[in-house]
Amino acid sequence: MKRKLVYVSVIVALSQLGGCASLGVQPWERDLLAKDEMALGAEGVDLGLDDHIYFSKEATSGGRSFAGGGCGCN
């Protein structure tokens, strides 16, 4: 378990180095990454609706991507 944690944290650290030291997969190994539910913006409609709710109820919004405008306050 501990070893796994170390492993994960090393990967996380390495991923930040970018460039050739970075990690990745070969082009034919993207079967899992290509699944719709693995897209970063999967369930875009849900994310948009959530953004609208939290935008009007909390002081911070955005960060993930550009959200459409409008107040829809209160």
């Binding site: 990967i11 970018g18 990745g24 970063l40």
Partner: peptide, 26 residues
Amino acid sequence: TTLDMLFGVTQVINRRMLMQFNYGLS
């Protein structure tokens, strides 16, 4: 008026994992 800037890096870690990091200025 609102001006937003967003800079991001997305990195595939392995066959199962990917990560994104964004900095946003508003």
